[in-house]
């Protein structure tokens, strides 16, 4: 399998990268980890005229807390997240997800920015971003803007990114006391795309759920933001009854399709199972102060 020909650019600044993207008017692609892009190019399902390799741009790979946010640079590798004590300790949902994305070798190349901006509803991080209420810093010809995760995913492989924009930083609100989160993925085999996945972020205070975020993987054209399910938890005592109700609401918005990873009815049911599991884990972690 051989990719088609393309121009290759390895700019050293974001502005330069944005300029090249603009010049190709939608016919250029950003090359970050390449673990999704290169296979589809080898299958000749994508034939961009140019690749803009952003890996030579300094200071795009980092995980740090700054201001009210956890900031993750776009070219941060999955395994950098898995190795990050900060992520492990304070944002366990990120390592829940990043540790089950593809396999360890792919995770050495695959980037957080790529997983989030590819727009594949079967990618694991978008649901986490929705649950966490994250936002994305995006650089374009007019400078930087931020896009909330909730309005980022428009359709399969279509995001709010303009062709000449690059996602540069993922911004996740810093956790407060009483926050807990988790990601549950059901897969046919280690390293496979998910059958389904559920991301949960909870904030508990005085044995009540104060706020919640729920994201769903692989049950729609994009990762889904299960808002009604999350809202149903607010004001409730964390526990099976509330979790079951939220899981049912999450199942209701799922739009799974039958494929090699299971029939639609199974996937919908599994959203319910995984939602309850993730809620229990998140709630336990909330109690633990994570």
């Amino acid at each position: 399998m051989i990719p088609p020909r393309f121009e290759y650019f390895a700019p050293s600044t974001l502005d330069e990268a944005v300029e090249i993207l603009g010049r190709y008017g939608g016919e250029a692609k950003v090359l970050a980890g390449g673990q999704s892009l290169l296979p589809v190019m080898k299958l000749r399902l994508a034939e961009p005229k140019a690749l803009v390799d952003i890996n030579r741009i300094p200071d795009l790979a980092y995980i740090r807390e700054d201001g009210g946010w956890l900031r993750i640079g776009a070219t941060t590798r999955m395994n950098d997240v898995n190795d990050s004590n900060l992520a492990k300790r304070r944002y366990p949902i990120l390592t829940d997800a990043a540790s089950v994305i593809a396999d360890p070798l792919v995770r050495n190349m695959g980037t957080v920015g790529g997983n989030i901006s590819h727009g594949d509803p079967a990618n694991d991080l978008p649901a986490c971003m929705l649950a966490l209420g994250a936002q994305f810093a995006v650089r374009g010809p007019k400078g930087t803007r931020t896009i909330p995760a909730a309005s980022f995913y428009l359709d399969t492989f279509t995001t709010a990114l303009e062709p000449d924009e690059i996602l540069t930083e993922i911004q996740i609100p810093k956790p407060r006391t009483g926050q807990g989160n988790a990601y549950e993925k059901l897969e046919k085999r280690a390293g496979d795309f998910p059958i389904v996945g559920v991301a949960i972020n909870l904030f508990e205070s005085g044995r009540k759920i104060e706020s919640a975020g729920i994201g769903l993987t692989a049950v729609g054209p994009t990762a889904l933001h299960a808002k009604a399910a999350a809202d149903s938890l607010v004001g409730q005592a964390p526990g099976d009854a509330a979790f079951r109700r939220a899981a049912e609401l999450a199942m209701q918005i799922a739009q799974p399709v039958s494929d090699l990873r299971g029939p639609a009815e199974y996937k919908r049911a599994m959203i319910g199972v995984l939602a309850q599991r993730a809620l229990r884990t998140a709630s336990k972690r909330a109690g633990g102060g994570a």
């Binding site: 296979p39 299958l43 085999r189 280690a190 390293g191 496979d192 090699l260």
Partner: peptide, 16 residues
Amino acid sequence: IQGGTFMDYLLPTAVE
């Protein structure tokens, strides 16, 4: 054919 790559035709890994 449904799934003519190793992305879909799943060989067992060491994990399972």
